[in-house]
Amino acid sequence: AQAKDLSVVGSWSSLPLHKQFEVPFWTKDLPADSGGAINVKMTTFDQMGIKGSDVLRMLSDGVFDVGMTVSDYAVGDAPELQGLDVPLVATTAKQARAMVNAARPMVADIMKQRFNAKLLAIAPYPPQVVFCKGNINSLADLKGKKVRGSGRMTTDFLEALGATGVNISFSEVPGALQRGVIDCAVTGAGSGYSAGWYEVSDSLYPIPLGGWDPVITAMNMNTWKSLSPKTQNLITTKIKSQFENPAWNNAAGALKNNIACLTGNGNCSAGKPAHMKLVKVTQADLDKAHRILVQKVLPEWAKQTDKKWVARWNQTVGKTVGVQVPLN
C-alpha cells in the first residue's frame, strides 16, 4: 500500500509534553511501528502563529490531519468541553486521570459532533497551581487579591472567593508580580520554575486552581476514515501505550519534582532549588472549594451548556470526583 502522509500540529513547542512525548511518538515511534505505512510532518500551533483556540476549527476544515490543543482553549466553540477540566476536583495525578477517563466517551462525542474529529488521546499538562507574593495560608487568604488566571471557570471561582481575576500574558507575570500589578498568578509548577517566578513570589499553593489543562489529540474524521482498519488499530493502540500512558505516568513524578525545585523540599533534578514556602492544602480548604464549585461555578456552566451534556457529566465525571451539578 501507499504510505500515508500525516500532517500533525502539536501543542506548545516549549513545554515538556511536546518535547518529551509528542515529538518522539509522532516523528519516530509511530512511523517506525507502521513499517513505512505512515509518514509524519510535525509542527506546533505556536510555531504556525495560530492560537490554541484555532486548532480544532482548522482541524475540522481539513487544514491538517492531526491537531493537539489544550481542551480549555476550545471551550468557546464547545462550552460542554469545560466539563473535562473543572478546577480543584482532582488534586492528584491519579484523580485527574480517573476524571479524564470518565470524561473520555463524552469528549469523543464532542469531538465528533462539534469538530468532525476522532479523539485519539488526552494527556495532561502539570496542574495549574498558585504562586503568590507574600504569605498565604489558606484559600480564604486569596480574598481581595489580584490573581492572574485564565478561563471562565477559574475566573468565576476567584470571583466567588472575593478575589479579582486579571488577564496578563505569561511573559508579563514576573514584572507584574514584582510591581504589584497582581498578587498571585496561576500556572503549571514546571513552567513557573523554568520562568523564574520564584524570584518574585514567596508562597506556593499547590492546588489546581487552573485545573490540569488536559491536552486533546484528535484526527480529522475524513482522514481517519481514509485509513485502513489495520492502521486505525495501530494508531489507537500505540498512542495509548507509547504516548498517553507514559505522559500520565510522568505527571505525578513531575509535579513532585517541580515542587521540590520551587521549595527546596526534596530532590530537584531540573537545576538549583528555590526556597518558596509550600502552603499545606487542608481538607477544610478542599471542602470549601467543592462548596463554591457546586453553588456558584458549576451552575454558571450549566446555564451555558446543553442540559444533556450536564446530565451526562453528572453520571460520569461527577460520579468519579463526587460532585453533582444541580440540574434545574
Binding site: S53, R57, D72, V75, G76, D77, S150, T155, E159, N167
Partner: peptide, 12 residues
C-alpha cells in the same frame, strides 16, 4: 462557525 456553535469568549 461562531454562529453555528453559539461561541462565547472563554472569559468572565
Amino acid at each position: 462557525k461562531t454562529i453555528a456553535h453559539h461561541a462565547l469568549a472563554n472569559t468572565s
